[in-house]
Design a protein around this nucleic acid. Structure first.
Lengths: 117, 117
DNA sequence: CCCTTACTTGAATGAGTGTTCATATGTTTC
DNA sequence: GAAACATATGAACACTCATTCAAGTAAGGG
């Protein structure tokens, strides 16, 4: 047993070294967590699920999810910032659609996972 | 254009109906979001990444992530509650390992996604 | 031009969350 | 049995976050 700088006892030094060796960069792991965090909200999951079916404008999404346009717009801003959705203006109407099929895959995998349990 | 109960104007009634028809149950979508939320924290992602390599006890994880055993234990409790990790007692030491390869798949897909960008 | 409409945005608020600290539990060792 | 140790857990704290509300922008119609 060894004490590290944090006063934590180490039991299996070798396994720790092994896990550490295969651990991706801190930065990458933080990004992975942030991606998941973005998907970790029912409103945003519903938005993505709807946009996976068809392009929709803000007020359509608001009607579909029975929420205010403001609430939807705030969430779309987050999804936009991560490049998950893109938008297209048509007059004063703004149409949103998916811009990242990786994320779509994640939602699908998670859906199948939940449905199996 | 139609006004629904929430005072939101509907632009594309047909598309909304289409999206609604393909929308999974509210309950399932909430569970999907909760699964993602659980993966949406750097500490938990690191724990899962480490356990994907090898079984580890709480203090090993604490040493690896340079955090207190208490903080790790709290996170493991959440992962345990969702059936994502399982544990095995060996005397006073508690070894944790992964108990859900779906989740492992999600992390892998997300890792590849982040690394591509 | 003014009014309505679709959307955005900033501040505020209430709920939720991760870590710390102190304490408790259960196990081993002396 | 007492001390040491690995975990677990409850409360507290700072912090984040989703929604609401109010105000602002930009486009179209009368």
């Amino acid at each position: 047993m060894v004490q590290d700088s944090c006063q934590v006892t180490v039991i299996n030094e070798q396994r720790i070294a092994q896990a550490q060796a295969q651990m991706p960069d801190e930065m990458i792991l933080v990004e992975v967590a942030e991606t998941f965090k973005l998907l970790g909200d029912p409103t945003r999951v519903k938005i993505l699920q709807a946009l996976a079916v068809t392009e929709l404008c803000v007020c359509d999404l608001a009607a579909l999810l029975e929420m205010t346009s403001s609430a939807i717009s705030h969430q779309l801003r987050l999804l936009r910032a991560r490049g998950i959705v893109r938008y297209r203006k048509e007059g004063k109407i703004v149409y949103y659609s998916l811009d990242d099929n990786h994320v779509q895959t994640l939602v699908e995998v998670s859906l199948r996972h939940v449905e199996e349990c």
